[in-house]
Design a protein around this nucleic acid. Structure first.
Length: 732
DNA sequence: GCCTCGGACTTTTTT
DNA sequence: AGTCCGAGGC
């Protein structure tokens, strides 16, 4: 019988999770416990053994990559029988639902998806309409707030209701304007995709019922990372049948900053009192020492649900701690070790991964890798589709497809330069606002009422857009991009520049065309009827991150942030920047909950390693262009001493803590006798009072001993560098 | 309308 | 140290 073959080779808990098909099920899957295996086999079991039709199953993940991987594995188990299974990300799922149903909400089916830079532009426009100066910084903050509201499931009315001060009320008003502008541009941002789907289901129970009946079985991966709206959506969809299986690990909840609510998984048993719970606690990935080290770190978090991971593998080597002089030494050590591993250890480059807290940390490592000709790939960072030239090309397509896409218009109206400048656009925008039409219409109207030069230039531009729009329905995506680059003169302008940068832009555009050529309208559903291939291509581009397409090739070292590393595993792992302010990150250090999330992030980083794990910290590091001295990360000190082997230059003042656990690096106590601002107060981010300049925040600590200087940003006097000995600072 | 210069800000993490 | 944005000059 097929059923037996689908659970073969699985441990009893995994098996239980697969065979428990009916009703609510919570699978607490620790790191490396075979979570993906359980999910894929469970899907295969439902179809192959229980006879559930594939289209009756909905499985949701967070990244397209995870979805693609799972789909591949299910197909391997079932073959063509898997056809019709709905396995995709939350966002793609919502897009597909909305493409069919958004008419119910009074919106059009042909909406475009705005990414965060488009969204930022809309926020700025909204601010302008409220007579606010759209300073980038303020706009970013507002955009962030709006995003958070959407993650919480709040529409403008609700945000206004919940505002408890004037500032929040004002922000809520801008939010309302922002939504209005999006609607006028026939655009949805990322948050809308989820939020409007939930709203749709709330307002139209019969629509919801249709999907509830269709998806008899619902599965959610990485449930600990769901936010409030995603939670609501899942609750809605599960409806009366309650066949919901969620898989996750509270210790790997690292997206709180994006609105994820760890309570969703912690409260699952409260939401579904009759839920079955399966714990997967056998780790098949890491050695015992690595797992024990990671576990010891995360165990410092309070209120962790009881969980005891057991390593099925051998004891393994000790976790290596390397103390680097600075970030260059850090990089040099990593590369040296990789080269050794390849030469003596019989390892492939692809078995090595380097993790860091922030993208900016990749640079020194890249330089070092280049120096030794080590092939590598940086995962994440600047998305390919976010490159200026790529966005330009796509913006032309967007505008041609949707003349109301104001952000696309603003982006490309003068690129390459064609004599339609800021003044013209500003005036067109005023006109558009007065008449409540699109910017393109505003531009047309403005040009008609103005003199020869502007009039001619705008007319030429309008003709260009028109031509593109007419061609669009007939073109394949790749041809459409070629047409854009040709007809707009974009490519010619770049080629004329003849600089290395321009050449690299041309390269990227060729890559864009190549990726468009590869595009196939996979899973094209009935909701896509009447939509052109270009539209479908634009959809995909909006929802796909670099992470999704990055291939973990066997012949390249992988570099990525810890967040990007989630879900992956590598035989050899290096975690860099284990310093206070770097990891845990500066911005998380004030708030205990944020520190706990950083600690989980550290747990994620460590548990990616299968055989060898190295944690590196640097004594000093260049940050924001100045040298800063670091303090060893508290997480390093939480790794039990007996699991660790230290290498690198020993520091005279370093000593074991009396408890015999962890480290005490005394060098970081920056010479307390050097004035009152020293000691713990001299940490970057600390507040001090200066007799002349007033209160300020320390930006950098330079040097030690009598000559120690601080760079301080004063609240009213700007940035100054002062010598601690003379400055008479006091803590503020 | 275009270009250049100076300043502010950056480094959280991303679907 | 790099990037991005806005102000001001041409």
């Amino acid at each position: 019988m097929l059923a037996e073959s689908l659970v073969e080779g699985l441990n009893p808990e995994q098996r239980a999770a697969i065979e428990c098909t009916e009703g609510p099920l919570l699978v607490l899957a620790g790191a490396g416990s075979g979570k993906t295996r359980v999910l894929t086999h469970r899907i295969a079991y439902l179809i192959g053994a229980c006879g559930i039709p594939p289209e009756g199953i909905l499985a949701v993940t967070f990244t397209n990559k995870a979805a693609g991987e799972m789909r591949g594995r299910v197909e391997k188990l079932l073959g063509p029988e898997a056809q019709g299974l709905w396995l995709s990300t939350f966002h793609s799922t919502c897009v597909r639902i909305l493409r069919r149903e958004i008419g119910q909400l009074g919106r059009e089916r042909g909406f475009v998806i705005y990414d965060q830079s488009d969204a930022l532009g809309v926020v700025k426009e909204a601010m302008r309409r409220h007579s606010l100066d759209p300073k980038t910084q303020d706009a970013k903050r507002l955009s962030w707030s709006i995003d958070q509201w959407k993650n919480a499931g709040w529409l403008p009315a609700e945000a206004a209701e919940k505002a408890n001060d004037l500032d929040a009320e004002h922000s809520a008003e801008i939010y309302a304007t922002y939504q209005k502008l999006l609607a006028e541009a026939n655009a949805l941002d990322f948050g809308d995709l989820l939020l409007l789907t939930v709203e749709l289901f709330e307002r139209y129970p019969d629509v919801l019922r249709h999907y509830q009946e269709r998806w008899q079985y619902v599965m959610v991966d990485e449930y600990q990372d769901t936010n409030r709206v995603q939670y609501q959506l899942v609750q809605q969809l599960v409806g009366p049948h309650r066949n919901l299986c969620v898989v996750g690990d509270p210790d790997q909840s690292v997206y709180g900053w994006r609105g994820a609510d760890i309570r969703n998984i912690l409260d699952f048993e409260r939401d579904f009192p009759d839920a079955q719970v399966v714990k997967l606690e056998r780790n098949y990935r890491s050695t015992q020492r690595i797992l024990a080290g990671a576990d010891a770190v995360v165990d410092n978090n309070p209120d962790r649900p009881a969980k005891k991971m057991i390593a099925e593998g051998g004891e393994g080597d000790r976790i290596i701690l390397y103390q680097a002089r600075d970030e260059r030494d850090e990089a040099a050590h990593v590369v040296r070790r990789i080269l050794e591993g390849v030469k003596d250890g019989d390892r492939a480059y692809g078995q090595h991964a380097v993790f860091y807290r922030t993208n900016a940390q990749s640079r020194p490592v890249e330089e070092e890798l280049l120096k030794y000709d080590v092939p590598y790939v940086v995962v994440g960072g600047v998305r390919f589709y976010d490159r200026a030239e790529v966005k330009d090309a796509l913006s032309y397509l967007r505008l041609a497809q949707n003349p109301r896409d104001d952000m696309a218009l603003r982006r490309i109206v003068n690129r390459p330069a064609r004599g339609i400048g800021k003044t013209t656009i500003d005036r067109a925008a005023v006109l558009a606002q007065e008449r409540t039409t699109s910017l393109l219409e505003g531009l047309r109207a403005y040009a008609e009422g103005s003199g020869g030069r502007v009039r001619a230039k705008v007319a030429e531009f309008l003709t260009l857009v028109n031509n593109l729009a007419e061609g669009l329905p007939h073109w394949e995506p790749a041809d459409a991009i070629s047409a854009v680059l040709d007809q707009t003169g974009y490519l010619r302008a770049l080629e004329k520049e003849a600089t290395p940068e321009a050449e690299s832009r041309v390269e990227n555009l060729r890559e864009l065309i190549a990726s468009a050529e590869d595009f196939e309208a996979a899973n094209r559903g009935p909701e896509d009827e009447g939509r052109s291939l270009v539209e479908l291509f634009l959809d995909q581009v909006a929802l796909v991150s670099d992470l999704d397409s990055a291939e973990m090739r066997d012949d390249r070292v992988s570099l990525m942030t810890v967040h990007s590393a989630k879900g992956l595993e590598f035989p050899v792992v290096f975690v860099l920047g284990m310093e206070e302010g770097v990891f845990p990150h500066q911005g998380s250090m004030r708030d205990e909950r944020a520190i706990e999330e950083e600690r989980r992030l550290c747990y994620v980083a460590m548990t990616r390693a299968m055989e060898e794990l190295t944690l590196v910290h640097a004594l000093e590091r260049r940050r924001f262009g100045t040298r800063t001295f670091g303090t060893v990360s508290r997480f390093l000190r939480e790794v039990p001493q007996d699991l660790v082997e230290e290498i690198g230059a020993p520091v005279a003042t370093r000593s074991w803590e009396s408890e015999g656990r962890g480290y005490d690096y005394s060098y970081d106590q920056s010479a307390p006798e050097e004035g009152e601002a020293s000691g713990s107060g001299a940490a970057v981010g600390g507040k001090v009072r200066h007799p002349v300049f007033g209160v300020g925040t320390i930006q950098a600590v330079m040097g030690r001993g009598p000559g120690q200087k601080l760079r301080i940003r004063f609240d009213h006097a700007g940035v100054k560098t002062v010598v601690v000995r003379y400055a008479n600072l006091e803590p503020a």
